[in-house]
Design a protein around this nucleic acid. Sequence first.
DNA 1: ATTATCTATAGATCTATAGATAATGC
DNA 2: ATTATCTATAGATCTATAGATAATGC
Lengths: 226, 226
Amino acid sequence: MAAVPASSTRFDRRRAQTRSALIKAAQDLLAEGRTGVPIQEVTERADVGIGTFYNHFDSKDQLFDAAVVDALEQLADLLDSLDSSLTDPAAHFARSFRLTGRLHRLAPQLSRVLLARGHELSTAPQGIGPRARRDILAAQAAGQFEARDLDRAMVLVTGSMIELGRVLHDRPELDGDAMTDEVTSDVLVALGMTRADADRICSTELPRLDDLTTDLLDDPARTATP
Amino acid sequence: MAAVPASSTRFDRRRAQTRSALIKAAQDLLAEGRTGVPIQEVTERADVGIGTFYNHFDSKDQLFDAAVVDALEQLADLLDSLDSSLTDPAAHFARSFRLTGRLHRLAPQLSRVLLARGHELSTAPQGIGPRARRDILAAQAAGQFEARDLDRAMVLVTGSMIELGRVLHDRPELDGDAMTDEVTSDVLVALGMTRADADRICSTELPRLDDLTTDLLDDPARTATP
DNA sequence: ATTATCTATAGATCTATAGATAATGC
DNA sequence: ATTATCTATAGATCTATAGATAATGC
């Protein structure tokens, strides 16, 4: 979550915590696809009074928008926290894609919030869209991907990631890691790599995500900040 | 639209027409993303009394579901109506994909209804999903596509088509035909064709869609059946 | 005689605010 | 003294139905 900032006063922290509880409640509801619920149900989940809602947001839509932006930031933060020593742009792109794919199963609730507004995954400035574009351009410049229109490349990249998430949620019997790596390979081939190179890049080992996802959206204790 | 069937009695036809007007109104609203409107707004658009709604549907959700199914059938009917003499499975797949891509601009409202529930495009039995699966399997059997898991192939195919539609709506300045053909080529390459073959297949001429879309969702006169 | 539709509305639900209370800053 | 939060609720909105009317079938 967009951590409650260590703002100046205790007042600010208290206020930020209330806002955070509202956003978390909205994310729960988004993940369940229940965006039509009355505001009172949101505030009850957040355990705040109804009136408090209007101290922070003007409307339900505004709250849900904020909830999606927060989720996008969580994902971006996660990927940044892993930003290790990889200087190879194609390898960096592939790793981000494979990790994001794994997230659908490791942090299903965060994933569902993101999928609720799938397209924003690539268009929002807070999202991983800018990161993906940067990596693709770098890989094109390095000659690893064929030079081509960025918008065109993003259609395949974004579309595949969103649909991958939907399928992994829909069909729990599928092997998520294998499917993710296969789809990543397909995307790399579409971007201009040979199948051999793509498969090789997709079978490298990944940093473990398990430890990092503990404080993500799915942890029930997350809002219970002491 | 699921044409008002030439059912036995005039009674049935009248009833079917009312139902059809409700579905059309729901599709208008779906295309605008306004699924939260009161039932009365739907019935006003359909120009029927409020009470009539409950003669046909139990809830708003049920109506919107029916509206999506109807749109899926429209698209399937359209593609079927073109089912000419193409015996080459890869070519048939590519043509369907390119035509569906063009539909986003030629029948924007139908497209928006489909995109409102994008994932169902591939999972619904009425949709073009079954058709796509059939074509892909045939092309794999014919050695045109690499043999591989169908679910894996569908992630790329479905995801790219949905994201393509969103991008074409979002960014009217893009050349829709060119973008569609390029994305189709990328998908074919990911499915195992060479880029040369894929580009060739994507530059063949298409049947004109303009004439066929006249009686689709976008025609304002559509519900005004005499 | 039967069935679809229409109008009007009771009752349920929801939004947004007013006014009171609690927590913090200075 | 200031600001966030809470409780209670007025007024708006929405759903779903009852009862009347219109269209068709036989």
